[in-house]
């Protein structure tokens, strides 16, 4: 990364600046290479082999062909998209509305804020235990209450029923990940100069107009990046689905990452697993390139 002199930096001393850059980027670049670049390259390499961890045989792209032509690939892809889009959009909506509420300095706002950040900080393992106690047909209290109140006659096995399984997994996911959008957007809301609202009010703008013309533009960058990374993470989400349904019943919640896992460790077909991971990577990368082009999420509203 070469640096060029910029107008803004003419105030600072050059060596100090360089030092700061070096101190920042060198360790990061090193970690990043070690933990991401090399392993991804390695995994992509494995995707060209049959049985890559033991007696590797080079097979070119045939793992990819096999995966792409598999009859269920499109179903798994659809499940992944459905899960990723629904959970991403829902957690953004939940997070955004809560951030707006908490930003209102209402009574009990502190408590609400603490409660809202909390689920995101809990490990998935714990989240699954908790939700099992809500949705499970045997030990789940939701079923217990619904039966007691006479809403349903028999407990519903939410994670075992084709119509419910995806929704149940999605609700569990939104519970955990809604707070992600919440605390990022809240930080951003805090950064909006209150004078802007004051001035708007003086000029006679309504609440809605102030929201539309001040709040939303200030949150744009954050919302765009949340949609992007949350979308990527949810598309690649494995643990929460596997721990609650293992991809079932039938293939109702089998997303591509679940399939990757099955290929890697139940098959075991590690070449196929890495090839599928590669396909997912290229799919996401394609979407991301378009996304970056269209929205330029790194551009913030200018001050």
């Amino acid at each position: 990364m070469s640096t060029v002199q910029s107008v803004k930096s003419s105030f600072g001393k050059l060596d100090e600046r360089r030092l700061l850059l070096l101190a920042t980027f060198v360790p990061f670049a090193a970690f990043f290479t070690l933990v991401w670049v090399i392993p991804i390259g390695y995994a992509l390499g494995m995707s060209l082999f049959q049985n890559p961890t033991a007696d590797a045989v080079f097979v070119g792209l045939s793992n990819y062909v096999e995966i792409l032509t598999g009859e269920e690939f499109l179903l798994f892809l659809w499940n992944s998209v459905l899960y990723a889009v629904s959970t991403t959009v829902l957690s953004l909506l939940v997070g955004l509305s809560l951030a707006l509420v908490v930003n209102q300095k209402i009574r009990g706002g502190n408590v609400l804020r603490t409660m809202m950040i909390f689920p995101y900080l809990l490990p998935t393992l714990v989240v699954i235990f908790i939700w099992k106690f809500i949705l499970d047909p045997n030990i789940g209290v939701l079923n217990q209450w619904l039966v007691e109140w006479g809403v349903i006659a028999e407990p519903i096995a939410f994670f075992s029923t084709i119509q419910w399984a995806m929704a149940a997994v999605a609700v569990t996911s939104v519970w955990k990940f809604g707070s992600f959008a919440f605390f990022i957007l809240l930080a951003r809301l805090q950064a909006i100069d209150p004078n802007l609202y004051e001035r708007a009010r003086v000029e006679g703008a309504s609440t809605w107009q102030a929201f539309r013309d001040i709040t939303i533009p200030h949150l744009r960058g954050a919302i765009l990046i949340i949609l992007l990374v949350r979308g990527i993470w949810m598309f690649n989400k494995f643990d929460i689905i596997y721990l609650s349904t293992r991809g079932g019943p039938l293939n109702a919640t089998t997303t591509l990452p679940i399939r990757v896992y099955e290929l890697a460790f139940n098959g075991p077909n590690f070449g196929g697993a890495t090839a599928l991971a590669g396909i997912m990577f290229f799919l996401l990368a394609g979407v991301a390139v378009v996304y970056f082009k269209v929205f330029e999420p790194e551009k913030e509203v200018a001050h």
């Binding site: 047909p137 045997n138 028999e154 096995a157 075992s160 029923t161 079932g248």
Partner: peptide, 11 residues
């Protein structure tokens, strides 16, 4: 029987 899809020992 109840819906036992995906039931492991514990279920």
């Amino acid at each position: 029987a109840p819906n036992g899809a995906g039931w492991e020992w514990g279920d």
